[in-house]
Design a protein around this nucleic acid. Structure first.
Lengths: 228, 228
DNA sequence: GCAAAAGTGTTTATGTTACACCCATGT
DNA sequence: ACATGGGTGTAACATAAACACTTTTGC
């Protein structure tokens, strides 16, 4: 097999599909492109991978640079490599998706992007590159994964009510869920900790819960599997 | 955002984890490396992505060049990009996995590899690069995916017996399955066509079945979901 | 006292598990 | 006739689905 150096090399980027949850619907964080190509259009936060960093680090770095978001849930999604996906030449993009808690959403424009803004998922502007396709893949992945992994909590504040998490599941799965059955099942797993705290409002106070990561890990090690 | 050309670029390869099923256990197709680095060691079939081909095509091309396999089930797995994974420098590898029917397994050494050989999955030699890790990811993916997608048939001949597919599921999932329950469930989905053909042997003849792709697609469109 | 959302159990239907014997062939 | 794997049904159990009213608060 020949040496690396004899081969023409593509550029490699990472692009992040950043999901947020705003109480009713899913949201997506997009940045306005500050340079060519697609200058002024909305795009996924992302950028070129440096030669000395691994892919996860590159995704995290770009996310922070362009959106100020840190310590989000981040997972590799799929790699997009059509030769025509970038007008500048051959650019392969490793897609990631991120889940951001609402209490960490203060977003100001970063160094690399002229602007960053949350959009409702069903109301996205037209997008640069093949970013629309990347988003579709991310959405499908989120929809599939939330049914058997407790990643939904990454989109909620640390303490949340059962109604909040049900609304989130309904938003992601796109269908209504029976309240009693949902609560029964979710609580039966035993990884939610009921707190002695309540949210007050013009109605009966709602109890707050917390996702107990340690207990979930233990259950998982014992082979118990979670399924909504 | 700066131009592509201002960035140092990594090399990009594709590597294929090729699964086969030999009647009892899962097998993996490996090639002996014909050049540095890791010359003479076993590795996944794969190679550099050309600038004018997409990733799926590159994986298919390398697979055919190194193993003569064509028209296999092929799916992108994960992208591996640790900066130290290749001693030649920065090489990012887009991992794929392939499922090969036993009747298409005649493998002769290709142009790029000195040798290609099937190994039982529980008896692999030591591997070049991080290919051991890639195989682990592929195995987990196969184990997960076979439970809700009918990809098992890609590892069997076109016509197969129910015992064959059960043995395959047991090999992939790593646990015994009840014969009656397995048959009942599998047939209940309605995407297996019972043929009027039987395999003879020193015992009662075993009926042959065929996976009916059209019927499966139809069921899938109607939202019926398959789960083993 | 009214509006608004929180909270709670039971019944029915469906799906999953466990389990053992007879059948058809080759030798 | 015997060895080998192929083929089949039922009962117990567990899980999922359907469903409506009472509670607690703010205004």
């Amino acid at each position: 097999m020949p040496f690396t150096y004899e081969h023409a090399r593509p550029s490699v980027t990472v692009d992040c599909v950043v999901f947020g949850f705003a109480g009713e619907g899913l949201q997506l964080l997009l940045v306005k492109r500050g340079g060519e190509p697609y200058e002024g259009e909305w795009a996924l936060p992302g950028g070129f991978v440096r030669l000395d960093e691994d892919l996860d680090s590159a995704a995290r770095r770009e996310l922070e640079e362009e959106t100020q978001l840190r310590e989000t849930y981040l997972e590799q999604l799929y790699t997009f490599g059509s030769p025509e996906r970038d007008p500048r030449g051959r650019v392969i993009s490793v897609g990631y998706y991120a889940l951001v808690r609402p209490d960490r959403q203060p977003v100001a424009g970063g160094t690399d992007a002229a602007d960053a803004r949350w959009f409702p998922l069903n109301g996205l502007p037209s997008l640069a590159f093949d970013h629309g396709e990347i988003i579709k893949v991310a959405r499908d992945r989120l929809q599939g994964k939330i049914r058997y992994q407790p990643i939904g909590f990454e989109l909620l504040p640390e303490k949340f009510t059962l109604t909040q998490i049900q609304t989130l599941y309904e938003a992601i799965l796109g269908c209504p869920i029976d309240k009693r059955n949902f609560r029964k099942k979710l609580l039966s797993f035993g990884f939610l900790e009921a707190l002695e705290e309540y949210v007050r409002g013009p109605h009966r106070p709602a109890r707050l819960y917390r996702f107990d990561q340690a207990r979930y890990s233990k259950l998982q090690r014992e082979g118990i599997l979670f399924q909504i």
